[in-house]
């Protein structure tokens, strides 16, 4: 904004104030609030990430049904960008992801990606490497949990 614009804006502001004081009618608009934009808050940094998953219960041994469901979701919604090896495609490869991240962080990142990219330093570091925001692929909690199971299975296979 150059000085001319600032000046104009100032005059405008003053003018609209004048209009109000002049007409003596300062009625408020009844308009619906748009969703509040992301407010800057000091993030609570934790290896669990940011989101509703703070205590994910793990299966032992792995659940075959969940693995199969997770694989289906992977192929439709994730495989375009993530390989199962360590090779980075658009996003990082999934090999060892369950070693690098907590189960909570993974599920929060899948289901709450916009807030994570906004506040979580680990997520932001990944964005700087990949340069593409991970899309919110609208996974249900159950789908996200199945994907986590498939990731754990994938990591067992790679060993």
């Amino acid at each position: 904004m150059n000085t001319k614009h600032i000046l104009t804006a100032t005059i405008l502001l003053a003018t609209s104030f004048l209009v109000y004081s002049c007409s003596g009618d300062g009625d408020k608009k009844e308009t619906t609030e748009a969703p509040a934009s992301m407010v800057e808050e000091a993030p609570e940094v934790s290896d669990k990430g940011i989101g509703k998953f703070q205590d994910v219960e793990l299966t032992n041994p792995l659940d075959e049904g969940m693995i199969a469901e997770g694989k289906t979701v992977y192929e439709v919604k994730c495989a375009s960008c993530h390989k199962l090896s360590s090779e980075k495609l658009v996003g990082p490869g999934w090999e060892d992801v369950t070693e690098r991240r907590t189960p909570e962080w993974i599920m929060n990142f899948i289901t709450n990606v916009d807030e994570m990219l906004e506040k979580d330093p680990e997520s932001q570091a990944m964005l700087e490497i990949c340069m593409v925001r991970m899309p919110n692929q609208n996974l249900s909690d159950e789908e996200a949990r199945n994907v986590l199971e498939f990731m754990r299975y994938n990591d067992q296979q790679q060993q």
Partner: peptide, 11 residues
């Protein structure tokens, strides 16, 4: 003008 004005971010 104020009656027709919908502020940025409002619906």
């Amino acid at each position: 003008a104020a009656k027709a004005y919908v502020a940025p971010g409002q619906y």
